[in-house]
Design a protein around this nucleic acid. Structure first.
Lengths: 158, 158
DNA sequence: CAGTATTGGTCAACCTGGTTGTCCAGGTCA
DNA sequence: TGACCTGGACAACCAGGTTGACCAATACTG
């Protein structure tokens, strides 16, 4: 007999996520990044982690390369990255993060951590750490790689 | 000093949610509901909870009435609900859940609970309950009503 | 009761973040 | 040289929303 239903659990997880992320996006807007979206942050992080081409980014984020190309286009448009064709391989277009892009993830990281710190205060450090450990278990048996958070900003599943 | 970053925490939450929901959708497909999507389930639950018109559903799910109308159209198309104009108010179109719709949420609820039960086995009942209590805190201070899970299947935030 | 305000629904256009499918030019390797 | 990857791009589409404009029916008010 569960005190809560499984469906509620799903809503709790999603609700917590959205609370956290919405807060970050909101705060980011007030700090000079009004057009930054979560998917941008994840993409820039992936690029920084080594995804220096569209195909590369697609693999990291576990999305199609077309989707990756669109994301990159959005990032370029907002000035977070630039692209230039690879001299060694004409097909390739190397992605480089601009200072503005660096600024974005720097701020974003800070805000994420601030919100987490607030949660830590409310829950207690040990409790939050425990919670994260438990969540990691649920994610851990997933076929999806957490290092590759692309599935993050996705559709619901098709 | 955090053992984990705030950004990771976000990913853990989202990852757990998607693991849970993907599992439910997948299993639902094998049990005769191959076209059921999470948003459908949430919508039918809201309807069952009393949202008997499009505007009503919109309020419950905290989406626009146009979006609610689209969702209802999808539900009708799939045979989960039917609509008929209210005899007492010609404008209104009352929604009624079909047997097929009842079947969907019955199965869905069962599957959600099954997955939750598996998590419970892995974590321990007390631990999972604690986790849910903690998540409820994060969601609790939200302006959004958890009884109204519509914000659930949404865009990232605009 | 008339007149105004609210409410339920619909159409149309658009957005985001993805998806297929098709295609080609440029590199890789037998 | 020829057969094959691989990076990228174009086009069309989808889900699940959004705005905005609008109309008809009901409700409220003087």
């Amino acid at each position: 007999m569960s005190s809560r239903s499984g469906a509620d659990l799903a809503l709790l997880l999603l609700g917590s996520y959205r609370n956290l992320v919405d807060e970050v996006v909101r705060e980011l807007a007030t700090r000079g990044y009004p057009d930054a979206r979560p998917s941008h942050e994840y993409a820039i992080r992936a690029i920084r982690a080594g995804a220096d081409s569209a195909s590369d980014l697609a693999r990291r984020l576990a999305i199609t390369k077309q989707a990756a190309a669109k994301t990159i286009a959005a990032l370029v448009e907002r000035g977070y990255v630039t692209t230039e064709t690879d001299p060694a391989d004409i097909r390739r277009k190397n992605i480089r993060i601009t200072d503005h892009g660096i600024g974005l993830i720097t701020e974003s990281t800070a805000i994420f951590d601030e919100v987490r710190a607030r949660w830590e205060v409310r829950l207690g450090a040990a409790e939050l750490a425990e919670l994260e450990k438990q969540l990691a278990q649920f994610v851990g048996d997933s076929p999806i790689n957490l290092d590759a958070p692309g599935w993050a900003a996705g559709q619901e599943l098709r």
